[in-house]
């Protein structure tokens, strides 16, 4: 099934299985949700263009026993709600000494979608990963999309920022039947290999897999691809285990790299797997400029598969 269908299944099942679940905003891109929107209309709100207030309303409701899913649509719109997401949702549990929890999902579509222009192409997950108290999910496959969202909406006690890449919506992949969930903090080995580890999340998972196929076909290099699924909590064991095996790592993410996701992961690898490393850790991120509109420029700054291939070639001896 497609990523969008998997997402829709998770939303619909969450609404069906737990009447505490409520939706504020119900766009979800092209995900097929018309039936659910009708069936659960009493628990679905279409707010005015007021991200700050409706995120805050979700947070307040979550403090009172509701389990809101907030659909922000474009990820950069969440910047309008930063004061509530970072300065209220993330801190409430700690600040109350464990008395007030905020089980809420902030869902958004991030990334270079194609012709989004600079304000609709952003990837805010480093901002949220930088905020203790928030969980950050960045699904890479349709199965991730469903399993992670079900777990966040139905089981988690913490606020979750759930980032889907717009370009993943029409990708296809196998999704287990029935009510299946993926507990946060469990990475997946998407492809096995012994020469280099490529660490990725979200859209970089299919891009890393594409790069790995090229590396195997054209260069005889077998890359292992790690799909992190969630940045917080982070499955260090799977990531570091792979790096210790291969001795080489390329970290890739579709965000800017200063204090970004690839930078943060590379630092953890350098700290904790230094003695296993045979080469420096390389990073492939969106280039450090505001994302331009024209297609060749947009494509140029993207963390494309060929840039991942080139980064691997820098650290793996030629074959």
């Amino acid at each position: 099934m497609t990523f969008g269908q998997a997402l829709a299944e998770a939303v619909e099942e969450a609404l069906a299985e737990d009447e505490r679940v409520t939706l504020i905003g119900a766009g979800f891109g092209s995900a097929p949700l018309d039936e659910a929107r009708e069936k659960y209309a009493a628990r679905i709100k279409y707010p005015p263009i007021a991200e700050l207030a409706y995120c805050g309303i979700g947070i307040g409701a979550a403090m009172c026993g509701v389990r809101p899913i907030i659909e922000l649509s474009t990820g950069t719109f969440s910047y309008e709600a930063i004061p509530q997401i970072i300065n209220e949702a993330a801190i409430a549990y700690s600040n109350s000494g464990g008395q007030t929890s905020v089980p809420i999902v902030f869902h958004m579509f991030h990334g270079i979608r194609g012709a989004g222009g600079v304000q609709h192409s952003g990837s805010p997950h480093p901002w949220y990963w930088n905020t203790p108290g928030l969980q950050v999910a960045v699904p890479g496959t349709p199965a991730d999309a469903k399993g992670l969202l079900r777990w966040a909406a139905l089981k988690s006690k913490n606020p979750t920022v759930y980032m889907n890449h717009t370009r993943l919506l029409n990708t296809r992949g196998g999704v287990p039947e029935g009510p299946f969930e993926i507990h946060f903090g469990q990475a997946e080995v998407s492809r096995s290999g012994n020469d280099v580890t490529i660490v990725a999340c979200g859209i970089q998972v299919p891009r890393a897999l594409e790069a790995a196929e090229t590396l195997a076909r054209d260069h005889g290099i077998e890359a292992e691809v790690i799909n992190l699924r969630t940045l917080q909590p982070l499955d260090r064991v799977t990531m570091l285990g792979s790096v210790r095996k291969t001795g080489r790592a390329v970290v890739t993410d579709e965000s800017h790299d200063n204090c970004g996701v690839a930078a943060g992961l590379a630092a953890i690898i350098a700290d904790e797997a230094f003695t296993s490393l045979k080469a420096p850790v390389k990073r492939v991120s969106t280039m450090p400029v505001p994302v331009p509109y024209a297609e060749p420029m947009e494509d140029f700054v993207t963390a494309r598969p060929d840039r991942i291939v080139a980064a691997v070639q820098e650290i793996v001896p030629g074959r």
Binding site: G60, A62, G65, V66, P83, N95
Partner: peptide, 24 residues
Amino acid sequence: LHTSAIVGGCLPLAAGAAYAAKLQ
């Protein structure tokens, strides 16, 4: 439930509590 020291910070939270009371 939670006290914000950001000016206006608690206003949407209060609206959220009222929304919860209404739903429930």
